[in-house]
Nucleic acid binder design. Structure first.
Lengths: 181, 181
DNA sequence: TCCTATTATGCAACTTGTTGCATAATGGGT
DNA sequence: ACCCATTATGCAACAAGTTGCATAATAGGA
């Protein structure tokens, strides 16, 4: 499970509150690991119980906003977890199941859906390219920046793959297409 | 959720029992959608309750093996589900979280793990190439075969991407490497 | 024949993630 | 002053997948 460690990473980058974390999970971190506000609040509480983070300004000025900060034990745990070795998770994609179903029960509307996915992946790709242009076009490359760029490149590669694959799939599904299988 | 429909697809390809399904989920179908025997037995029962499959030879010759067969309602449901439209699931990869953690807490043992992953992905890639050679080297292309080939190609593309990415990541992580950040 | 490994089935408890709803507080418009 | 949209936090129930264990039956070897 990655959520606690994703939270630790985000809080090390900058201490903040649950709702701010939720916002950040809709952007950068969330491109590769999503979490709802529910998961975040639940997990922050757990991290606090474990002594990995601590809440600042428990009931501060306006609102009830509570910022969290990583404690040394949390930083140590993050380091341990990051260096741990794991098996690569196998692929798991519903689209593949649906393509195999198509193969068995003949033509369906699947091609329409894949056309729509193609659009979604093209959008993501454009977004990632824009971010790359904005954040990584100059050549200043600290280790930190190189690693963040690397993660973005994974997104670029993955979306490119999906765009290619959707096009291939559409070609196959349309070949003996809507009219004459 | 794809499991019930993955099971329907597998049972349409060939009716069989829970344990046989588990075996098939370790091979072909399981390359893209994994399931434990627990999930399979639990789900088969549910599919039977829904009237989508029916059990043959309820307590046949040897063992207690019970083969399941898809009913017309199950076939209809599979068709409906296959044509349904969905949002593309966003990327979700623990490795990206760990790379971002690396960026924040400085050098860790992560590069060792990525080297090991590289090996795993190279193995998968070799396996998929072998399957492609064995099953798809002649040019006889029915719609069914083309679709199955397409799914395999997704696996080939994905593993190729991972191999490339692991090599890139190792390069970045080793650059200011173990000795001198 | 008996022992054991393998195959086949299943329950129960747990983890992770999702959904729907509830509540509190603030700030801006009227 | 009052209403209301927004922000921030949280509970409870559910859904999906995992893990550990249990049980039955048969096949094959000692």
């Amino acid at each position: 499970m990655s959520l606690p460690h994703a939270l630790l990473t985000a809080l090390l980058e900058r201490p903040c509150s649950g709702s701010e974390l939720a916002g950040r999970f809709d952007r950068s971190i969330g491109f590769f690991w999503q979490a709802t506000h529910q998961q975040i609040y639940r997990e922050l509480k757990r991290l606090e119980d474990l002594g990995w983070v601590t809440a600042l300004e428990p009931e501060a000025g306006r609102g009830r906003k509570r910022a969290y900060q990583v404690l040394p034990a949390g930083r140590e745990e993050l380091r341990r977890w990051t260096g741990e070795s794991r098996e690569a998770k196998p692929l798991r994609d519903e689209l593949m199941v649906r393509l195999r179903a198509e193969a068995v029960i003949g033509p369906t509307d699947l091609v329409r859906d894949i056309e729509s996915r193609l659009g979604q992946h093209l959008e993501k790709l454009a977004l990632y390219r824009e971010i790359e242009r904005r954040d990584f076009s100059d050549g200043a490359d600290s280790r930190q920046r190189e690693l963040r760029h690397l993660v973005l490149q994974a997104g670029l590669m993955a979306e490119t793959l999906w765009v290619d694959f959707c096009r291939q799939a559409i070609a196959v599904l349309s070949a003996d297409g809507p009219g004459n299988p």
